[in-house]
Computed example of a mutant assay.
Amino acid sequence: MSSASFSDQSPDDLALDQIGPALSRLRRRAPASGKDLSRNLVLNVIADAPDETTVGGLAAEMGVAQPVASRTVAALIQEGLLRRAASQLDGRRTVLELTEHGEAERGRFAAEQRAAFLEITAAWSPEERLLFARLLVRYGVDATAWSRSRAAARD
């Protein structure tokens, strides 16, 4: 986009154009190590899944190749955060489940993220914090539904 047409944009359009970069910065500035970020992502994907999760399903949800998801799962099983189990829907399939330790780690990550959120937004009013939190959660729910409906339409 040329700078002339960029300057012709309304302030609302300019703000909307910043959503992608802002979400990217949020991801990069997460208050955790890279290892914790990936562990937290996997634990949340499995915990939030509406159905049983396989390694292939995890890979698809995370947008990574199956060997990457498989290595991550193996490491989390070794750490005692996940376990493999027989599917209750199809005993021939193996699904992933959080262990008690995995649930505890997920809670620890959530507490760290809440503390970081409170520090980052310390200058915000309580109303601004709650509004942003509610809208961000809503965005996450709607983005998941949107992504799943697009995937279903491709199948």
Rank of each mutant, 00 (worst) to 15 (best):
L23D: 04
L23C: 12
R27N: 13
R28S: 08
R28W: 07
R29W: 04
A30L: 13
A30C: 10
A32W: 08
A32E: 10
S33C: 14
K35M: 14
D36Y: 09
D36N: 14
D36C: 15
D36I: 06
D36V: 08
S38V: 05
S38G: 04
N40V: 08
N40T: 12
V42S: 13
L43M: 05
V45I: 07
V45E: 03
A49V: 02
A49Y: 07
A49I: 00
A49C: 03
P50G: 07
D51A: 07
E52S: 02
T53G: 00
T54N: 00
V55K: 00
G56H: 01
A60I: 13
A60P: 09
M62F: 13
V64Q: 04
V64R: 05
Q66M: 08
Q66V: 13
A69H: 03
A69E: 09
S70Y: 04
R71A: 13
T72F: 01
A74H: 15
A74F: 13
Q78A: 12
Q78K: 15
Q78C: 06
Q78V: 12
G80V: 05
G80W: 00
L82R: 06
R84K: 14
A86W: 14
A86N: 10
A86S: 15
A86P: 11
Q88K: 13
L89N: 10
D90P: 07
D90G: 03
G91K: 13
G91F: 05
R92P: 02
T94P: 00
T94W: 01
L96R: 01
L98M: 09
L98V: 04
L98R: 08
E100K: 10
H101F: 14
H101C: 12
G102V: 12
E103C: 03
A104F: 10
A104C: 05
A104S: 05
E105H: 09
R106F: 15
R106T: 10
